[in-house]
Design a protein around this nucleic acid. Structure first.
Lengths: 402, 402
DNA sequence: TGATTTAATTTGATTTTCAAATTAAAACTG
DNA sequence: CAGTTTTAATTTGAAAATCAAATTAAATCA
């Protein structure tokens, strides 16, 4: 149940090399507490296996003594893909073992909700579309990471329910495994952004942090002790349905007082619709455009619009402060792709958090904003695949498959 | 930085024996994934060192084959004390290495807030008072666990601030270490109850759970992956200062809308004082008696009193639901010693939680009530000491000190 | 050119672990 | 009751993982 601690050294050293990218053996020894002798032995093995490579001298050339030789992950060792299954599309990235993005692709789904077989088929098709221009094929991949909205049992690769799947309780992992002939790693998409931040983003330096995303809903990913925390039922952290008001505004989920019911787009438009600044009066065809108009009005000094936006920001700050009071993380990353969520990231909101958390001598956690594009989700999925492939590679080493 | 994985086997096996108390070697092997050969070798070593002992045949005597021989922690191996530093008193317990309580004691502090030296002196005195009737002395102890309110850096044993200490930024661990000549383990008292539940209480079976306590304030302890989660600034989970209402009721901490400002005793009395059921009208000298009277009125059908109590309960349910939405724990333990907090543990409150969490197919986390006495804090402190002493014992084994 | 300095490797154990074979201790069995 | 069966624990012999100390390697400095 506890699992083997075998290959502990290989695992730790490979992870340390990945984290600190170009790093000399002596620093690895320092960092990990593993003796220099063992570092030499193990890294030699990793190099022989093709997972790691030496790189030419680093920047500082002036040192006395024997120059250190930096090590890094060997990108060419493996190829992985990351796929995010969104509402009506797939976004894909191709990544090498070092985490370099080699290609990206997007694919429009034929339907919003698909059967398992049809979904896997579209997935395989999209993968092929990304790979063939590069002269690669699916069989060149060592792993595929897949992120999907819904309730996912990561351990088993089971999707209990998802808006993208018409079937329930599907083992998506094994379905993809067998269809593609490539190991698949499936996770709830709420965790993808946390994974992406941990692997490639602002969370690289932190061991305990929280990522909050605002898209159509409000999502959260939790990293504790350098690992994604998934809760026990695997339905992810439902920050958006955290209650911020007893018997408050009605939420899409049917309950009252959810944070989402105050800060999501639909919540802002609902408020706007009942005032003289009514939603009808807001120019714009789409909701996005109307939100844009509302924010513009607030910015221009319209008191009603300003009031709407202000309350949303204050509610958001309150929700975040609660997270801080409970978790006390090193870092909170506010991540999102859409500029219109800008108002929630305003300086006043961040200041509001600091006013609502328990005051101690130490400084409050850092709150940073990370604005990124659509691809971050797919990158997070790829990071999952990388983690899995790394694990498999170490296991293969242990089993003596050179 | 990663630390040694040496003695991994010893550590894991000793922990497994402690957790599953009387357990045969073959089951240990099964549970931990460590081979039977190694289990034999390592347990032999643990027995030789006196940390573990064999116990006579277990209940079921009917089995075929060679009978299994159960192992258990040897209580006599070590003696630890747990001390909780409360407002105006110390509670102490004496515990053997197996976790059996051998004695208890309480001591009234000369002042509420003391200097470090004076506090340590009273501590030593109280310890002596507990030990001498048993013919023991402080030097017989292998460790002392100490829980203190305030902001504690557990890693370093530093108390940044505490209501019980007039000094700031004191290394209480080293102060006790040197004064008593016994290794001390100091922690924030919010974590003590979590530790007690994990070691002796309802959390023994769970790996991820949350303990909420209601005393004069509202506290919380978090166990993730079988370890106390402390956050990064070590000030503990401030569940009581979680905000449940924007610009809400004024809290003792000076902020508004804290959960505590709705459910703590003072909050209920404040409400009562402004109605015809006013606090003055509540019979009773002390706050506790007046609370008792208020609850009685609510129970008897007084609408105003009922309303006050109802809202408190609903706020509490909301706060708990937020925890569930964020953490998704297996189990929530509502722990407390005072019966008057009863209204917050009512069935309706627990039902209220279930109505406010995101619905998934799986069943919601279990919510259990654990009513315990004053000593639980001290027991938690003792559990800390046990953990530390166990660690030291394993290390000593590794270093070859038989 | 040799001394100095620092990094990496080798050497020769020691420690930890395990699979397979063996022994131990019981209950059945005819 | 002697032999068989069954299950638990131990022994045996070897492999794997790790380390401290000694050695070698590759640079700069004087």
């Amino acid at each position: 149940m506890i699992g083997q601690q075998r290959s502990f050294g290989r695992r730790v050293l490979l992870a340390a090399i990945r984290q600190n990218s170009p790093i000399a053996r002596i620093d690895l020894s320092e960092q990990t507490g593993i003796s220099r002798a063992t570092v030499t032995t193990v890294t030699a093995e990793l190099i022989r296996a093709g997972l790691v490579e030496e790189v030419a001298a680093q920047g500082t050339e002036m040192a006395r003594g024997r120059p250190r030789v930096d090590l890094k992950i060997r990108g060419a060792a493996h190829l992985v893909a990351g796929i995010k299954i969104a509402n009506s599309s797939l976004s894909l990235v191709l990544m090498d073992f070092e985490g370099n993005q080699l290609a990206e692709h997007s694919h429009v789904l034929s339907k919003t909700t698909l059967g398992t077989e049809a979904l896997v088929e579209e997935l395989a098709g999209a993968l092929g579309d990304m790979l063939t221009p590069l002269g690669k094929s699916v069989s060149d991949l060592s792993g595929v990471g897949v992120g999907i909205a819904g309730i996912v049992d990561v351990q088993q690769g089971l999707v209990h329910w998802s808006p993208s799947l018409s079937d329930r309780n599907i083992n998506l992992r094994s379905a993809i495994d067998t269809a593609l002939g490539v190991p698949a790693f499936v996770d709830n998409d709420a965790n993808l952004v946390a994974m992406a931040e941990k692997s490639f983003g602002l969370g690289r330096e932190a061991t305990d942090f929280i990522v909050v995303t605002i898209e159509s809903g409000v999502g959260m990913g939790i990293v504790i002790n350098n690992e994604i925390y998934r809760g026990t039922r695997g339905c992810g952290a439902e920050f958006g349905h955290t209650k911020v008001h007893l018997d408050g505004a009605l939420c899409r989920c049917g309950q009252r007082g959810c944070l989402e019911a105050y800060v999501a787009d639909y919540a802002l438009l609902r408020e706007a619709s009942v005032t003289h600044a009514g939603a009808g009066a807001l120019t714009g065809e789409t909701d996005e455009q109307r939100i844009e108009a509302l924010l513009q009005r607030a910015h221009d000094g319209d008191p009603v619009a300003g009031n709407i936006v202000l309350r949303a920001g204050r509610m958001f700050a309150m929700g975040l402060a609660n997270i801080v009071n409970i978790f006390d993380p090193q870092l909170i990353v506010l991540a999102g792709e859409r500029m219109q969520s800008n108002h929630l990231y305003a300086e006043e909101v961040i200041a509001g958090i600091k006013d609502s958390i328990v005051q101690v001598d130490q400084s409050p956690p850092e709150v940073v904003i990370h604005r990124w594009g659509d691809l971050m989700w797919a990158k997070g999925a790829a990071a999952y695949a990388l983690e899995g492939v790394e694990e498999m590679a170490v296991e293969a080493l242990r089993a003596g498959e050179i």
